[in-house]
């Protein structure tokens, strides 16, 4: 098991470099760059800029210049837009905002999703089942850029209960609407996965055995069915948590939150190359770690799995 974890962590390193290289290449492939201004500038100044930032050098020199500090010191350099600010500082400052919203949304989605999914599975084809699955279908099909403004309209602009936007601190009412908006989709997915997983398990032979032993239905479900029924949820929520923690572009945009997602969008619009590469690398690392966590969780949950 330990060897498996070490091996997986070692594989992570080349993967990250492939991701960074691809990102670097894609930025270069798109026309224009950070220094392209809307109004035309004199040729001499353009040449000066090219000279200063090494844009007139061959691509492999530029690539080497971009990669070397990352390889040497994990240093992603300074942002071009936010002058003098290291990329790592920007990430360190915006991550807690994204992670707070993401983690709360994740927990809410997990608790409610599993509850509704289990109820739907246990009362298959009942009103409970149809109601939960209808709501889940809505949650999946309505995009969050619709859900967010709708919630704002109801709870902020009509009822005046909650602030419509902006960051109000780590434990404030301003968290409620973004968390609700963000968790909807995940809650819906988790509810559907739970229902499907539980239905399959509840039909299995060993559940019949458990019932034939005279166990209470509650014990049959909690002790025998839940663990296997939730395996699909485990594999879904690993990557889902990675995305939630590293910020979601749309929700942070709607609610004007200073999170990682918002910086990511800004960086892309500004062609702020070091910041883009830094954030992409960070998201990739988080995702790979979460996938590793899922695999470890699998081995822990299912005794048949050995690495």
């Amino acid at each position: 098991m330990l060897r498996f974890i070490i091996r997986r962590l070692l594989i992570t390193i080349p993967t990250i470099f492939v991701v960074i290289t691809l990102t670097w290449g894609l930025i270069r492939l798109a026309p224009g760059n950070f220094y392209t201004a809307e109004r035309s500038i004199p040729k001499a100044i353009r040449e000066n800029i090219k000279e200063k930032y090494g844009l007139n050098k061959p691509w492999y020199v530029q690539y080497g210049k971009a990669m070397w500090p990352i390889v040497r010191h994990l240093d992603f350099g300074n942002s071009l837009k936010y002058q003098g600010q290291p990329v790592s500082n920007i990430i360190a400052r915006s991550l807690p905002v994204s992670a707070t919203i993401g983690l709360l949304a994740y927990l809410l989605a997990l608790i409610l999703g599993i509850t509704f999914g289990s109820i739907a599975a246990l009362k298959q084809n009942s009103a409970w089942d149809y109601a939960s699955m209808a709501v889940a279908m809505l949650g999946i099909s309505i995009p969050n850029f619709v859900v967010g403004p709708l919630l704002v309209m109801v709870f902020s602009l009509s009822l005046y209960w909650l602030p419509p936007a902006r960051w109000g601190g780590f434990w404030s009412k301003s968290l409620i609407l973004p968390v609700l908006t963000l968790s909807g989709l995940y809650m819906a997915y988790i509810a559907r996965l739970t229902r499907a997983g539980m239905l399959e398990v509840l039909r299995s032979d060993y559940i019949r055995t458990a019932r034939s032993k005279g166990l209470r239905e509650r014990d049959v479900v909690i002790r025998h069915a839940l663990r296997a029924g939730l395996m699909p949820v485990v594999s879904f929520t690993g990557p889902a948590l990675a995305f939630l923690l590293t910020g979601t572009v749309v929700v942070e945009r709607i609610f004007a939150l200073p999170g990682l997602g918002n910086y990511f969008i800004q960086a892309s619009l500004n062609r702020d190359e070091p910041l883009i590469i830094g954030i992409v690398a960070f998201i990739a690392i988080t995702l790979l770690l979460m996938n590793l966590l899922v695999d470890i969780a699998y081995a822990y949950l299912d005794p048949r799995i050995r690495y």
Binding site: S204, D205, Y206, R208, T209, A210, A228, D302, P303, R304
Partner: peptide
């Protein structure tokens, strides 16, 4: 089927 009748977990 004794392969599936016991809880594998």
């Amino acid at each position: 089927d004794p392969m599936t009748s016991l809880n594998p977990f």
